[in-house]
Simulated assay, not measured.
Amino acid sequence: MPEPLIKYCGNKSLRDVQVVAKSKAHYIGFIFANSKRKVSPSDVNKWLRQVDIRDKKTVGIFVNAELKEIEEVLAKVPLSVIQCHGTESVDFIKQVKNKTSLHVWKVIHHNEQGLQMMKEFAGVADGYVVDTKVANIWGGSGISFDWKSIPLYQHEARKQRVPCFIAGGIGPDNIENLLHYDIDGFDISSGIELDGKKDHIIIQTIEKWVDTCVERTK
């Protein structure tokens, strides 16, 4: 299997950014929506000026934000990707793309209508994150959805020729099982934390599993 794309999300301190900067992640995520991991654009700007994140791309996470709010963040933070994590419409995603000229990912909260929703964003979304929606928590719950559905989402994303990341409840204890689904990528937040902070040992453990699984399939 090809090496999966890695996104480590919910970075909320200079230390978190320093830890993730040394990882093999392709994407480093920052949450600008109401969340226990919410950060301010000014802080992220300051961290990114202090840390060499190498060739990692930055992802900004928004939940049902107004276009003006996204623009205000972009004025301070050099984002590579905008991730819409709420109930944003196809038209709104088009507006964001036209206004910012950036790639926009749409989060699909797994349910019976999830696959149909992904189809509705075909030709508009530049990528997807399939996550678990729990009560009033939009993401970062540490709870997995039924992974038997992954092939359906993955197949649709490949038809659209865009990446599909799997999120929700991923950690060192189940990453090997997840990789058996031949995913494009995975997105982890709480699963790489110890006492609420990104942990380099946990990250190394996950990345060793990734290397092992990729090597096995060569």
Results as ranks from 00 to 15, higher is better:
5 L>I: 14
5 L>W: 12
6 I>Q: 09
6 I>W: 07
7 K>V: 04
9 C>S: 03
10 G>E: 09
10 G>Y: 12
11 N>E: 02
12 K>I: 09
14 L>C: 07
21 A>W: 01
21 A>R: 00
21 A>P: 01
21 A>T: 01
27 Y>T: 04
28 I>F: 07
28 I>T: 09
30 F>H: 04
30 F>M: 04
33 A>F: 02
34 N>A: 15
36 K>D: 11
37 R>P: 01
37 R>K: 10
38 K>N: 13
39 V>P: 03
41 P>E: 05
42 S>L: 08
44 V>P: 02
45 N>K: 15
45 N>Y: 14
45 N>T: 13
48 L>R: 11
49 R>C: 11
52 D>I: 03
52 D>N: 15
52 D>R: 07
55 D>E: 11
57 K>V: 02
59 V>M: 02
61 I>V: 15
62 F>L: 09
62 F>H: 07
63 V>I: 13
65 A>Y: 08
65 A>M: 05
65 A>N: 05
67 L>C: 03
67 L>I: 09
69 E>Y: 08
69 E>Q: 14
69 E>H: 13
70 I>L: 11
71 E>A: 07
74 L>D: 06
78 P>N: 12
80 S>P: 05
80 S>D: 15
81 V>H: 08
81 V>A: 06
82 I>Q: 01
83 Q>A: 04
83 Q>N: 10
86 G>N: 05
87 T>D: 12
88 E>F: 06
88 E>M: 05
92 F>G: 03
94 K>G: 10
95 Q>C: 13
95 Q>N: 14
101 S>G: 08
103 H>N: 09
106 K>Q: 14
107 V>I: 06
107 V>T: 15
108 I>C: 01
108 I>V: 09
109 H>C: 00
109 H>F: 03
114 G>W: 04
118 M>R: 01
120 E>Q: 12
120 E>W: 04
121 F>E: 03
122 A>Y: 14
123 G>E: 09
123 G>Q: 09
124 V>P: 00
124 V>H: 02
128 Y>C: 03
128 Y>W: 12
129 V>A: 00
130 V>F: 00
131 D>H: 02
131 D>T: 02
131 D>V: 01
132 T>Q: 07
135 A>I: 11
136 N>D: 14
136 N>L: 11
137 I>T: 12
138 W>P: 05
139 G>M: 03
139 G>N: 05
140 G>D: 02
143 I>G: 03
145 F>D: 06
146 D>I: 06
146 D>N: 14
149 S>Q: 10
154 Q>K: 07
155 H>I: 14
156 E>L: 09
157 A>D: 05
159 K>H: 12
160 Q>N: 11
163 P>N: 10
164 C>R: 08
166 I>F: 12
171 G>V: 07
175 I>K: 00
175 I>L: 10
176 E>Y: 07
176 E>Q: 11
177 N>M: 12
177 N>F: 11
178 L>A: 08
178 L>G: 06
180 H>D: 15
181 Y>F: 14
182 D>L: 12
184 D>N: 15
186 F>S: 12
187 D>T: 05
188 I>S: 00
188 I>C: 03
194 L>D: 10
196 G>Y: 05
201 I>Y: 13
201 I>R: 14
203 I>G: 00
207 E>Q: 15
207 E>I: 09
210 V>W: 08
213 C>S: 13
214 V>W: 06
215 E>F: 13
215 E>R: 14
216 R>Y: 13
216 R>V: 12
216 R>L: 15
